[in-house]
Write a protein that binds this DNA or RNA. Structure first.
Length: 594
RNA sequence: GGGGUCGUAGUUAAGUCGGUUAUAACGCCGGCCUGUCACGCCGGAGGCCGUGGGUUCGAGUCCCAUCGACCCCGCCA
């Protein structure tokens, strides 16, 4: 057994040493990050979770330590004793937090060796992500990932502290729960006891937190894993974490205010950013009209403009007829976009085609004329009124899309984001929050041939819209709200239905029979009949919040052990086949995939 | 399900028009070096060119299929 571990004990973390420790005897434990062996003088950068410090092994200080240091290789685990000394003036390393000092080693023990690594820790060259993921425990030695996870821990702690101070109670809800076919695809867990029946992992603790309100807990929160078996994206994992909350006896205003204070607290405590309150709000309609999306990125302008009324009576028959048949023509202005080549414009057209649009029309505004695919169809005063409503001048380029309104908004909204990235319009270190309110209650699903809940079926309709419930469900606005940060939906919630009769009417509007509703949500409907208080809540995507706070480009950078785009773990090789005996116990049989 | 980018020593890349022994840097192994900090210098080893098939006298290079990583659309109440 190592004397270092049993008797000597670590005195400091490497990264915490400063000039304030000068002259102190210290004991450090960590990994050999870099070594510079000059023969009779050996330097190593010793690393632990707090950072790096340079250790110098000089035979004149200690012969044994120096000869041991000669054996060191990358990522060996060592314990070192030594004295904190000043570096010679011209040897100070400003790039290193501990760069003013170094530790003169008097003893060292190699606690463990390391094989040659598949990649260097904090390598200068970018290693392919599949290799990093296969050895995730090594990639996590990288300061960038370590710092992300340390901030994640800090923000979780600050969330708990703040919510506790506001009277929220943390309650755990089940992971093995009931499948609800509304919403995302469920992850299923077979029951051994009830063969042929399945649990589902929760997409969110939605119903349970409402039941806790009915139980009288008044204010609930939980930092909790949720599971959705849908395709992945840079900001989507099959299992992810929410800050989930619910409050009783409140209206929208109370909830939004409470949440703004939470956001302000965690941004301040986490990364020292002051968020100006109140957070601005816009309605769903305003978001779609101006940004084409319900998660508008308000860090830059380039708003969508509706030009349908100008094109309605123009000689440009393609657009005029589109408008007359109920389609829309909208455009965005690329400031100083005149430098766009034909190839650039073709690339934009390919981009919008991938979003479902037919293509684009474009116009480069030049002094006194338009260089444009559509100029020959337009009168001078039409061009002028387009330029005027777009705020366009010489040197700008306009991009037009004509299609069904939903396609125009989606494709142009996505193009807006695409262009902002391409043109570097987004300033780093900006945090643009927006509440989006007044969502539609329902949207019509072509694939299902019925209305589906836009938020979820427990969302309360606006009282003044209730009359439309049976005949014009598409008109109803919900008491729902999303919090959007930098174009990312980081949270969403609603005031819930707390009256059983309203809940039943909403289920009917979703083409759910009384029988079906009872089978799927009977326990909630029944609970609503025993004194359910008015209540509402919200859930924040914790991973996405940390992504934005750390500036991480991928959600994988803020999760310790993430999954690939095919929802696999390259390290553990999950998912994997199981023994026949395990299947038998569950009365399951695998049908060979075609 | 659809669109796109990529896959060559342990790692990152180069590899011309299909033609001799597949090249470099970092890492690895051996040696030298008392102020380095991506230390430096000298020498060496290291390859199923993702996998399978095809075209060809000849394939890292051309064709087809397939697997994997990433980005986007659909999907994600």
């Amino acid at each position: 057994m190592s004397e270092f571990i049993t008797k000597t004990k670590r005195t400091h973390y490497c990264g915490d040493l400063t000039a304030a420790n000068l002259g102190e005897q210290v004991v450090l434990m960590g990994w050999v990050h870099r070594r510079r062996d000059l023969g009779s003088l050996v330097f190593i950068d010793l690393r632990d979770r707090e950072g790096l410090v340079q250790i110098v092994f000089n035979p004149e200080t200690n012969v044994h330590a120096h000869s041991e240091a000669g054996k060191l290789k990358y990522e060996y685990v060592v314990a070192v004793t030594g004295r904190v000394v000043n570096r010679p003036e011209n040897m100070i390393n400003r790039a290193l937090k501990t760069g003013e000092i170094e530790v003169e080693a008097t003893d060292i023990e190699i606690l463990n060796e390391s094989k040659t690594l598949p990649f260097m820790i904090e390598s200068e060259t970018e290693v392919s992500e599949s290799i990093l993921l296969k050895h995730r425990y090594l990639d996590l030695r990288n300061a960038r990932l370590r710092n992300n996870l340390m901030l994640r821990s800090k923000v979780a702690l600050e969330t708990r502290k703040h919510l506790a101070s506001q009277g929220f109670i943390e309650v755990e809800t089940p992971f093995l729960t009931k499948s609800t076919p509304e919403g995302a695809r469920d992850y299923l867990v077979p029951s051994r006891v009830a063969k042929g029946s399945f649990f589902a992992l929760p997409q969110s603790p939605q119903i349970f937190k409402q039941l806790l309100m009915i139980s009288g807990f008044d204010r609930y929160f939980q930092i909790v894993k949720c599971f959705r078996d849908e395709d992945l994206r840079a900001d989507r994992q099959p299992e992810f974490t929410q800050i989930d909350m619910e409050m009783s006896f409140i209206c929208e205003e109370d909830l939004l205010k409470t949440m703004e204070r939470l956001m302000a607290h965690i941004f301040n405590a986490g990364i020292g950013i002051e968020i100006p309150l109140p957070i601005p709000r816009m309605t769903y309609k305003e978001a779609i009209d101006n940004y084409g999306k319900d998660n508008p990125d308000t860090r830059f302008a380039m708003k969508l403009k509706d030009l349908s009324s100008i094109f309605r009576n123009s000689d440009f028959r393609v657009f005029a007829e589109a408008v007359k048949s109920g389609n829309a023509v909208k455009a965005i202005r690329i400031e100083k976009g005149a430098s766009f080549s034909r190839k650039d414009l073709d690339e934009l057209a390919a981009f919008v085609k991938n979003c479902g649009a037919q293509g684009i029309a474009w116009a480069k505004i030049e002094e006194g004329r338009w260089n444009s695919s559509i100029a020959k169809f337009l009168k001078i005063d039409e061009m002028n009124s387009i330029a005027e409503s777009m705020g366009a001048g010489a040197g700008d380029t306009l991009i037009f899309i004509a299609d069904k309104p939903s396609v125009v908004n989606e494709s142009l909204g996505n193009l807006r984001i695409h262009l902002a990235k391409k043109l570097n319009l987004i300033k780093p270190d900006m945090f643009a929050f927006t509440w989006v309110t007044d969502f539609p209650m329902f949207e019509y699903s072509e694939t299902e041939g019925r209305y589906v809940a836009m938020h979820h079926p427990f969302t309360s309709p606006k009282i003044e819209d209730l009359a439309f419930l049976e005949n014009e469900p598409g008109k109803i606005r919900a008491r729902a709200y999303d919090l959007v940060l930098n174009g990312s939906e980081i949270g969403g919630g609603s005031i819930r239905i707390h009256k059983q009769d309203v809940q039943s009417r909403v289920f009917r509007a979703l083409s759910m029979t009384e029988e079906e509703a009872k089978i799927k949500f009977g326990f909630l409907l029944e609970a609503l009949e025993y004194g359910a208080p008015p209540h509402g809540g919200i859930a924040f995507g914790f991973d996405r919040l940390i992504m934005i706070m750390t500036g991480a480009p991928s959600i994988r950078d803020v999760i310790a052990f993430p999954k690939t785009q095919k929802a696999a773990c390259l390290m553990s090789e999950a998912p994997s086949p199981v023994d026949e005996s395990q299947l038998e116990e569950l009365a399951l049989k695998i049908r060979q995939p075609v």
